[in-house]
């Protein structure tokens, strides 16, 4: 029983997740990027295990930490995006976002089809500006942090 319900819940969560990323193409490419980072990081660990030699360890650290920190930065950016997204959601109905998939879809459809009432959009943006960092600013900060991180990694490996 419990396993079944767990499976159901998992299934539900996955479905929710896929709907979410389908709804927002930005989240989707962030996640694809993250997947790529995980693959690169795993590749480096496997390589070091196979050659059975940690030398040069600073190079390994640099390569591995580059992946990890890029991943962290991506997640930060993603959180900003999701929060912004949820604010839009919350402005309509204050309910649990997980059980609110259909509305999300509906909302995103509305967004995409420009059928959303003007007042709602205006309302959401005003809330955004009040409580949350805007997407543009979040992205600019993300760019700056990433550039610094790449700079540090390239220096550390040498």
């Amino acid at each position: 029983m419990s396993t079944e319900s767990t499976f159901k819940q998992l299934n539900k969560a996955l479905t929710t997740y896929f709907h979410t990323i389908d709804a927002n193409i930005n989240l989707k490419i962030i996640d694809i990027f993250n997947l790529g980072l995980v693959i690169i990081a795993v590749f480096q660990v496997v390589f070091m295990t196979l050659i059975r030699d940690t030398f040069p360890f600073n190079a390994f650290l640099s390569g591995f930490i580059c992946c990890v920190s890029q991943f962290v930065l991506n997640v930060c950016l993603r959180l900003q995006m999701v929060e912004n997204f949820q604010v839009v959601d919350d402005s309509n109905v204050l309910v649990n976002p997980v059980s609110d998939v259909k509305k999300n879809i509906a909302l995103s459809n509305e967004k995409n089809n420009l059928k959303k009432p003007v007042s709602v959009v205006a309302k959401t943006e005003s809330i955004n500006q009040k409580n949350k960092i805007s997407e543009k600013r979040a992205f600019a900060e993300y760019l700056l942090a990433s550039l610094i991180m790449h700079f540090v990694c390239l220096h550390f490996i040498n």
């Binding site: 980072l37 690169i40 590749f43 480096q44 390589f47 050659i51 030699d53 030398f55 040069p56 190079a59 390994f60 640099s62 390569g63 591995f64 580059c66 992946c67 890029q70 790449h150 990694c153 390239l154 490996i157």
Partner: peptide
């Protein structure tokens, strides 16, 4: 260092 090239490449890949 030949071993380090792997890690260097992965940074450039990132």
């Amino acid at each position: 260092i030949t071993n380090a090239r792997v890690y260097l490449c992965s940074i450039f890949a990132v």
